[in-house]
Computed example of a mutant assay.
Amino acid sequence: MANFSRYLSLQIILIFLAFACCNHHAAGYGGLRVGFYEQTCPHLEHIVKEISDQVMAVAPSLAGPLLRMHFHDCFVRGCEGSVLLDSPTKQAEKDAIPNLSLRGFQIIDKVKTAVEEACPGVVSCADILATVARDVTAAMKGPYWEVETGRRDGRVSNMTEALFNLLPPFANITTLKQGFLDRGLSVKDLVVLSGGHTIGISHCSSFTDRLYNFTGKGDADPSLDPNYAEKLRMKCPEASPTDNLVEMDPGSVRTFDTSYFTLIAKRRGLFTSDAALLDDEETKAYLVQQALTHGSTFFKDFGESMVNMGKDRSPPGDQGEIRKVCTAVTVIINASKGPNLLSPLGEFGPD
């Protein structure tokens, strides 16, 4: 009996050790959780918030681009920082047409430098980008949510992948729903995250087809409020040689609020993809509810949907890394030269 008891105790210990080992492995290799860096970089959140608040105090116009940068990262290869990589031949994600309007990369670099000083080689650029997106949103009087961390940085950044995976401003509701479904996101996530257009600006070229040549016959988009369309034509003349800028949420472009939904309900969405939210019963019901209740659940929903989006796949531990700088791959596995070949460049092109 004594031998059996010792045997049973040993089995319980082995099971516990196996469970602990597996949990540690999951946390390090793609298992996201709040407080992932509590022990290894306890001041991370403070560092990111301090720099984000400083930037927003002097350059609030960067809030929209920094929030959108996280979106664009997650929609190509998952949330693994590939949008941050530079390419010597201009073939990385940031060089794709949909990403040419992104701004604020230097802010991510600034945060990374500060974090590296405090916790060298610990925090991924992907996690920094996700946390900055939250903090600039909160700084614009928007919602605050707990950011799950534990991502690893990817080593591949491909311009073509960005071109084909980022949802364009002219997407219809079918394309939008399928694009979100492909990334494990719901129809509710689609309409909620579209509310991020409450901050930021756009180039006229992203929507002028709705004003002058919607069907290729020199016509305007009939779904666009005529008065709003006329105001847009004044800001975006058809023959203008320059690509002017227009607020996505006129009047509150630097405040994260719920007026976006009121505008869409009045057929004043800037992009075709905004107007498309009226073409689905579920998305229309949500935006009408938020418009009528002054966004009664929007802030809570936005935080939840951002967490949902942030769960998109991260490279497993044997493929991802923790970059030293966010613009360049740190370690490239090369069988002929050994496993730790340092390189100032990333890997660009397909896997």
Rank of each mutant, 00 (worst) to 15 (best):
F298V: 06
T272A: 15
K300S: 15
A265C: 12
E282G: 05
A276S: 09
D280T: 10
G269A: 04
C236M: 02
D249Y: 05
T255P: 05
F261P: 03
T272F: 12
S259C: 10
Y260E: 06
L224F: 01
D274Q: 07
P241A: 03
F271C: 00
S259R: 15
K300G: 14
T297F: 07
Y228P: 00
S240G: 04
G251F: 05
A220D: 10
T242G: 06
L270T: 03
I264E: 03
Y260P: 01
L232M: 03
T262N: 09
K284Q: 13
T262S: 12
M306V: 09
L287C: 03
R268E: 13
E281W: 10
T283G: 04
V307W: 12
D257R: 04
T272E: 15
G269T: 01
T272I: 14
S223W: 11
P226H: 00
A239Y: 07
P237W: 01
R254A: 12
A239C: 09
R267A: 07
T242H: 05
P237T: 03
Y228I: 00
L224E: 00
Y260N: 02
G303N: 11
H294S: 15
V246C: 01
A229S: 09
D301T: 11
T242D: 12
G310K: 09
Y228A: 00
M234C: 12
A229N: 06
I264G: 00
K231E: 03
S296Q: 15
I264M: 06
C236Q: 04
A285D: 14
A275Y: 08
V246L: 03
E230R: 04
E304N: 14
S223Y: 08
M248H: 08
D225N: 14
F299A: 13
N227S: 13
F261S: 02
S273K: 08
